[in-house]
Design a binder for these strands. Structure first.
Length: 315
RNA sequence: GGUGGGGUGGCCGAGUGGCUAAUGGCAGCAGACUGUAAAUCUGCCGGGUUAACGCCCUACGAAGGUUCGAAUCCUUCCCCCACCA
């Protein structure tokens, strides 16, 4: 499976669009924010023009108030991939949400059935606890996960209590087999990323982001999951009169930089290096390199489907 | 010109004689990550040296001084802010 990934504003979509037009691809968006309807400018969704140039899947598939998940996305992505193929196109997964890629390619463990009501009540309770307190619980219930963040702790504790099983055990026991072999094209312009982030932000601020946020503030409740996309909180503060344009710009810049940094850390350590091809989109010959990657990855895909291989073709 | 307040590590900001290379926060760097992931967390964070403990140097506007010892006390100077003229 072809995957174009990389930090935000790196130029993933330019590369993906180029490949899509050249090789008749359909784009599968692996982006946890572009799924939300109405959150367009600030999430840098592909333009209508781009969307008419190649089929896009995975965009505008959820209400802003909906609590989405990596598993839900991966399941939907299965359908999109089939849909792309049925339409005679090569699916090309594009996105920067590492966990979504993992959910699709490594498969998350099968979650035991949980009583929704009890789970909701428990999560509400755990939400009131201090982080240290959650750590103490996790140390008893699922020590292997006790070093993680709040979100993970709540989940580990919840499953341990409600299902009587540790997430860390389920990882091993309930693992789902991977369905595809990914080939990653990691797009990253290196030091040029910072100026690109700034330029994109200025463009967003001049092309409707403030209005978009003002509109969303009327219709989408303030605690909707869609809001926690970097920048939206800052722009919302500005629109509410709690901040200035300059301060907002500065804050969003920082949030975006930090996000890009986290993405780089993820891709650097979580992706198997042997499956990754690096692409610097500021290289003049990036199209050649991208095309070569596409060919090699296609060949690898064919081999994988004809003979459930044991080895990996190196990139 | 007078009076009062203030100048602290990249920034903000505690600290009023030794426990202070100096609480916090931000920014930065590195890392973790299997169902909210643009999320949620962890470590480092003056310089040099060390595997580490440590050791050395530089540092609280500037210059002097008091003291065994000063970011902290005294003197002068520079700059900022407020109020009075």
């Amino acid at each position: 499976m072809h995957v174009v990934c990389g930090p935000t504003a790196a130029g993933k979509s330019e590369v993906a669009m180029w490949l899509a037009e050249r090789a008749a691809c359909a784009l599968i968006s692996a982006d946890s924010r572009q799924i939300y309807r109405g959150f367009d400018v600030g999430t840098a969704k592909p333009s209508p023009a781009d969307r008419s140039r190649a089929p896009h899947y995975g965009i505008d598939v959820a209400e802003p108030t909906e609590r989405y998940s990596a598993a839900a996305w991966a399941e939907a992505a299965d359908g999109w991939i089939s849909g792309a193929r049925a339409g005679g196109r090569t699916p090309l997964v594009v996105g920067g949400t590492g966990l979504y890629l993992r959910a699709l390619f490594d498969g998350l463990f099968a979650e035991p059935a949980l009583d929704a009501v009890r789970r909701g009540a428990l999560e509400e309770l755990l939400g009131t606890l201090e982080l240290d307190e959650l750590r103490r619980w996790a140390n008893i219930l699922d020590p292997a996960r006790a070093h993680l963040g709040r979100t993970q702790l709540v989940r580990a504790i919840g499953i341990a209590l409600l299902a009587g099983e540790r997430v860390s055990d389920l990882h091993r026991r309930n693992a789902r087999p991977p369905r595809w072999r990914p080939r990653y094209l990691l797009v990253d312009p290196g030091p040029a990323l910072q100026p690109r982030i700034a330029a994109r932000l200025d463009h967003m601020l001049d092309h409707g982001w403030p209005d978009e946020v003002r509109r969303l503030m009327q219709t989408v409740s303030a605690d909707a999951p869609a809001w926690n996309a970097s920048g939206y909180g800052a722009v919302r503060d500005w629109m509410a009169g709690r901040s200035t344009r300059d301060a907002t710009r500065e804050r969003v810049l920082i949030e975006t930089r930090q996000y890009a940094k986290r993405q780089r850390t993820w891709f650097r350590h979580q992706l198997p290096e042997r499956l990754v091809t690096h692409l610097d989109p500021t290289d003049v010959d990036w199209p050649t390199r991208a095309a070569r990657w596409f060919e090699v990855a296609s060949t690898a895909n064919e081999q994988a489907t004809t003979a459930p291989a044991t080895g990996e073709a190196s990139s």
